[in-house]
Design a protein around this nucleic acid. Structure first.
Lengths: 64, 64
DNA sequence: TCCCGATGTCAAGCGTGCTTTACATGGATC
DNA sequence: GATCCATGTAAAGCACGCTTGACATCGGGA
């Protein structure tokens, strides 16, 4: 499961810490998701899509 | 996080076991998701949306 | 050069997601 | 009543998601 979070965050000029605050997780969690350590839970994925004003499928790419 | 899996599955005439097979999880996992025991992981959510030919937001409803 | 903000990473700890095995219940059919 | 299928549930075990706290590195600006 890939994601476009680093790119989408950069477009908006947000730091990892800022994004973390917007979706109510720790900075380390955002970093781990961006660097592919693990996939977020479904609720966190929804919150991420929401702060980017995108659909989940536009943020996360299922590579089967 | 609510979901419409029981309803969508019934529309298609699938049993929990059939759906489980289609998304490659155990029957107990489908049952637990339907009965609200826990939310699926993001990859399983993608597979569920895919077998229903719907977007994730049409299968899962984030109740903030 | 010195500092500082941003990012990467590690460790310990805890709750969740998912598995297998197993058993209980209810409805339909015989 | 006996059988069968679908569903619900439980326990044990393992891996993952997320936390806090801490430390390392890197680039930019004073």
């Amino acid at each position: 499961m890939k994601n476009r979070i680093t790119e989408l965050r950069a477009e908006r000029g947000w730091t990892q810490a800022e994004l973390a605050q917007r979706v109510s997780v720790s900075r380390q969690t955002i970093n781990a998701i961006e660097t592919g350590k693990f996939d977020p839970s479904l609720p966190v994925a929804f919150r991420l899509a929401r702060v980017f004003a995108l659909r989940i499928e536009e943020v996360f790419v299922d590579d089967q």
